[in-house]
Write a protein that binds this DNA or RNA. Structure first.
Length: 426
RNA sequence: GGAGAGGUGGCCGAGCGGUUUAAGGCAGCUGCCUGCUAAGCAGUUGUGGGGGCAACCUCACCUCGGGUUCGAAUCCCGACCUCUCCGCCA
């Protein structure tokens, strides 16, 4: 949510932001409504003040059992009716205004390149080298099938297409990666580990900005109007919804493992094979609540925390800065980490590290009291995947595949795999 | 699933139609007193909007949204949340 005051004073900035993102919201209408509201508010407040005064008099007369009371009441009955109508007008205007305001995305940070699509993203750096093979590298799909660690067919009987069923060392690999990442972030990077609910209320998704735009992409429990989380960002950011935090407890770092549920509506036919686009995947998420003046540095640190996962596992990746068209609704800036999938022969997004500035904090009402008192200020929220599984498993299997069909396990992960150093066929 | 109770300021807690611009207490802050501390006394303390150069003025806010009324924390309806008992259950 943008501050209406900010919109008033920066109309062109807001309009440019919408153009750059390729989105449309009727800002002029919003401003007209705002003017109208201010005008009516002034009127209604004066009328209300008058009414309050008279009502107070009536009260005094009643208590003194004076006979004039009923006459006074009759006098203001009509006036009171009239100003109630005016009040309803204002409510209607406010409703319209809010409906528009909730559709306005965050303003892109000045560092965000203007662009129309992924081709306009800018590579920031890359790490490591793509692995070389003296045989034709296979896709994770084939590797997983021949090793019998992931079943893509039977799972359709259970949940339909777009799901995965992990067996044996495949299931263990998933669990090992989760524990490896959680341990890294909680012990080395000082995040507080959280195990949140996977089902959340509608308001939480509005707070973080997934709603109202992405409702079609969510799994909904209609009876209760509850949603399966598309990312742990939602429960983690909403931990402090409606709170005033104290200056001294910031910054707050949280991390959580959760599965993520996405309908991927409209993406049928794309990437239907394997693990690249599935309806349920595991992810470690990092979320920060910080003071505004530190949010730029905090984003860089968050990105490094996520990158370290891939570095320790020896997976080649690159970092790209998303352009305006690719930026998510609530984000002011965002880095994607893309890991190299040797069998696919392309990079796959495994992390988005974003700063939301005060956008989510305003929607969700998360503020803090600055040191030494003064007005309450909105915190800045940030988050990033650290990192998303499924796609990382793709890169993992394709990077560490061997000519004999086995997959070696890099050293840092072996203790998590019960000491195993490779996944063997059979 | 059934029955009941309740949601009041930073916290506890009264109020259940008109000096409530929310009693009282705790905590915090500021004075006074005191060699210092404690105690005591006095004052003060929220959020958001609108107006003014300013001290200040004004409107709203007792979980949220509707309604009744000249007037609602207080009465009515609906949501959400919390608690107790019964049933079911890993």
């Amino acid at each position: 949510m943008l501050d209406i005051k900010f919109i008033r004073e920066n109309v062109e900035v807001v309009k440019k932001s919408l153009r750059d993102r390729g989105m449309k919201v009727d800002i002029d209408k919003l401003l007209v409504l705002d003017e109208e509201k201010k005008k009516l508010l002034l009127q209604v407040e004066e009328q209300r003040r008058q009414r309050n005064l008279i009502s107070e008099e009536v009260g005094k007369l009643k208590q003194a059992s004076a006979p004039d009371a009923d006459k006074k009441i009759a006098e203001i009955r009509v006036a009171s009716q009239e100003f109630k109508e005016l009040e309803n007008n204002i409510k209607e205007i406010v409703r319209e205004q809010e409906e528009l305001a909730i559709l306005i995305p965050n303003i892109p940070h000045q560092s965000v390149p203007v662009g129309d699509g992924s081709e306009d993203n800018v590579e920031v750096r890359s790490w490591g080298e793509p692995p070389r093979f003296d045989f034709a590298p296979r896709s994770h799909y084939e590797i997983a099938k021949s090793l019998k660690i992931i079943d893509f067919e039977r799972v359709a009987k259970i949940s339909g297409s777009g799901f995965a069923l992990y067996y044996g060392l495949g299931a263990k690999l998933e669990r090992a990666l989760i524990n490896f990442m959680l341990d890294l972030h909680t012990t080395k990077h000082n995040y507080i580990e959280v195990s949140p609910p996977f089902i959340v209320k509608r308001g939480c998704l509005t707070g973080t900005g997934q709603l109202p735009l992405l409702e079609d992409d969510m799994y909904i429990c209609e009876k209760d109007d509850l949603f399966l989380i598309p990312t742990a960002e939602v429960p983690l950011t909403n931990i402090h919804v409606g709170e005033v935090l104290s200056d001294s407890e910031l910054p707050l770092y949280y991390c959580a493992y959760t599965p993520c549920f996405r309908r991927e509506a409209g993406s049928y036919g794309k990437e239907t094979k394997g693990l690249i686009r599935i309806h349920q995947f595991d992810k470690i998420e990092l979320v920060k609540f910080v003071k505004p003046e530190t949010s730029e540095d905090e984003l860089e640190l968050l990105l490094k925390d996520a990158e370290e996962v891939l570095q320790l596992l020896g997976l080649h990746y690159r970092v790209v800065r998303l352009c305006t068209a690719e930026l998510s609704f609530a984000a002011s800036r965002c880095y994607d980490i893309e890991v190299w999938a040797a069998g696919e022969g392309r990079y796959l997004e495994v992390s988005s590290c974003s700063s939301f500035s005060d956008f989510q904090a305003m929607r969700a009402g998360i503020r803090y009291r600055p040191e030494g008192g003064g007005k309450l200020k909105y915190v800045h929220t940030l988050n990033g995947s650290g990192v998303a599984l499924a796609r990382m498993v793709v890169a993992f299997l394709e990077t560490y595949q061997q000519a004999d069909g086995s997959v070696t396990i890099p050293e840092p992960l072996r203790t998590y795999m019960g000491g195993a150093d490779k996944i063997l066929e059979g």
